[in-house]
């Protein structure tokens, strides 16, 4: 392939969509939750680019186009929320306090464990917004002094862990309500967890979408303050 073609958006877009399509087929046929399509596609694309010696910048031309769609999709999360407004309003207490507890536990467990296992200050600060949705997490990391690319990696990894194990883990804990499960998936593993929740249950998915926004908002307000306090 000529480098002109490699560096056209067509290449990265085609690669991402084909990879995702194949990963989804694999996921549907195997029925293995560990083969989460997002995680599988990311690993497969990285390996492919490394093995074929294709520079990341070539892929990124098209990657950026797909990444751009994350923005309007976050705005679109208002739609499932609006549709389920009655159920959500009825349960505002478990939703608000569940996410608040989740936001605090995320910040303290991520930083505490990172520090305990010997992470440097930059690594601990990069771990702090790990459960927050990518666009907000990057804003927070920048503000508190984390390493931005590292935060991206951690946030995506967190999302994959939640999507792979979240629903099953909640069931294991004896949580059967779709609201509480959606709350946990959205708070712990943002959009990737929400996408998984949407497959399981619509109301749970709407609650997960709300939890993304609420956790992002609470973490953006809490974290800079907590870093000042414990810094």
């Amino acid at each position: 392939m000529t480098s002109e073609l490699l560096y056209s958006p067509l290449f990265g877009i085609t690669l991402t969509l084909s990879g995702y399509f194949l990963a989804q087929q694999l996921y549907r046929r195997s029925r293995l939750i560990l083969l989460n399509p997002v995680a599988v596609t990311i690993v497969a694309l990285i390996l492919l680019l490394l093995l074929c010696d294709i520079p990341y910048e070539a892929y990124a031309q098209g990657g950026r186009v797909i990444h751009f769609l994350l923005g309007p999709s976050v705005v679109a999360l208002a739609v499932p929320l609006y549709r389920r407004r009655k159920e959500v309003m009825q349960r505002w207490r478990p939703i608000f306090f569940g996410v608040l507890a989740g936001a605090f536990s995320s910040i303290f467990s991520a930083c505490g464990l990172g520090w305990f296992f010997g992470g440097s200050r930059e690594v601990v600060l990069s771990l702090a917004p790990k459960s927050v949705t990518t666009p907000i997490a990057l804003g927070i990391a920048e503000k508190i002094g984390g390493i931005i690319p590292l935060t991206t990696a951690i946030v995506v990894f967190t999302g994959c862990v939640g999507a792979m194990c979240g629903v099953e883990f909640c069931r294991l804990l004896g949580v059967r309500s779709s609201v509480a499960t959606g709350l946990a998936l959205g708070t712990a593993s943002h959009g990737i967890g929400t996408a998984r929740m949407l497959e399981v249950d619509r109301l749970g998915g709407a609650v997960a979408g709300l939890a993304i926004g609420l956790n992002g908002l609470l973490s953006a307000l809490l974290l800079p303050f907590l870093v000042l306090l414990f810094g």
Partner: peptide
């Protein structure tokens, strides 16, 4: 990679558990 991997995985389970349990309890 060790603190990053361990903190990310363990903390994700902590958050899942805390959020689901608090949500279930208040619900």
């Amino acid at each position: 990679w060790q603190p990053i991997l361990l903190a990310t995985v363990l903390s994700t389970f902590v958050v899942l558990g805390v959020t689901a349990k608090v949500g279930q309890w208040l619900e």
